[in-house]
Design a protein around this nucleic acid. Structure first.
Length: 315
DNA sequence: GCGTGTTTAATACGAT
DNA sequence: ATCGTATTAAACACGC
């Protein structure tokens, strides 16, 4: 029986499928697309388990990328030199995960199954690739635009969201990343297999490793997980382009973080940060996300959204 | 050669 | 038992 310890829990295989892990990596990126090598890196950074047997799981991961329609390949632009293509989530792959939990997928995503809700998103892989490439550009434009907007006191840590759903699955991406291993309470109701157990208290997320980003700037109290790090369900991240393109996620409190922008995460989860090392340790900070919860269905127009809209119309 | 990408096949497991 | 999905292994192609 494994005992709690550095090389037992922390090296445990995470309860996520390769699809989940890949989706996490992709969604952690600013442009919502990553080259294969960055996906590898993300996973190895966060999950010590995957620092071994790299041949095995990387082969599996590549298999999943090719095999599953939910991943689409995006050719590099001339200004994106490097090896291999980018990989992104199909714009219509929303709702792929049950309740936004990376632990459970609803069903295999197939192109043309019309389970997505983005009326603008093409379903053909080629079209989707182009669409996402455009989306990536837009995100960068929006990010730059937002960077010039005033910042609220308290920075990125507002937590007001416009999601109509108050969905808060404990394994939703925002909770995964928020939870870290270093919860204020130190414990959470999860089994060692990673699944929620209400009658059992074990250290949460032993399989995850901080690699220098243990101390997120926005620790979330999981005891009040109603408003999580992202403050939005995965599905809205996944097809955030339903009304607006998904917003780039700044990885640390920068002026680029704009409070109140619909769909814009105001907590920046370290887990999703694409450069975890860049996160400087900060003093524990109570989650302020619950301090200004958005009412279900509420939308919060902001100057940033205006900036985004203008960015959208520019292409 | 190596990294990337595709495909097929076998196997295991959970849900129904 | 059957089906769907995930994992793993392996072979192969392609480009640098």
């Amino acid at each position: 029986m494994p005992r709690p310890g550095r090389n037992t829990y922390s090296d445990q295989k995470p309860p996520y499928s390769y699809i989940s892990l890949t989706a996490m990596a992709i969604q952690s990126s600013t442009e919502k697309m990553l080259p294969l090598s960055e996906i590898y890196k993300f996973i190895m950074d966060r999950f010590p388990y995957y620092r071994e047997n790299t041949q095995r799981w990387q082969n599996s991961l590549r298999h999943n990328l090719s095999f599953n329609d939910c991943f689409i390949k995006i050719p590099r632009r001339p200004d994106q030199p490097g090896k291999g293509s980018f990989w992104a989530l199909h714009p219509n792959c929303g709702d792929m995960f049950e309740n936004g939990s990376f632990l459970r997928r609803r069903k295999r995503f197939k192109v043309g199954s019309m389970q997505g809700t983005d009326p603008l998103a093409p379903s053909k892989p080629q079209d989707a690739a182009h669409y996402l490439q455009q989306q990536a550009k837009l995100r960068l434009s929006a990010l730059h635009a937002a960077a010039h907007l005033p910042q609220m006191p308290g920075g990125y840590n507002l937590g007001s969201v416009s999601q109509p759903s108050s969905f808060k699955h404990p394994f939703a991406i925002e909770n995964i990343i928020a939870r870290e291993y270093k919860m204020p309470g130190g414990l959470a109701a999860f089994s060692t297999s990673g699944y929620p157990l209400h009658n059992q208290l074990t250290p949460a997320w032993p399989h995850m490793y901080g690699s220098g980003m243990m101390d997120t700037a926005a620790p979330i109290s999981m005891a009040h997980s109603d408003y999580s790090a992202y403050g939005m369900p995965l599905k809205s991240i996944c097809h955030g382009a339903q009304t607006l393109p998904a917003i780039p996620v700044p990885i640390k409190p920068t002026p680029a973080s704009v409070p109140g922008l619909p769909g814009l995460p105001t907590h920046i989860p370290a887990f999703l940060a694409n450069s975890p090392q860049s996160l400087s340790p900060t003093s524990p900070q109570t989650a302020t996300g619950q301090s200004s919860p958005a009412a279900p269905g509420e939308t919060l127009p902001s100057s940033a959204s205006v900036a985004l809209q203008s960015a959208v119309t520019v292409h």
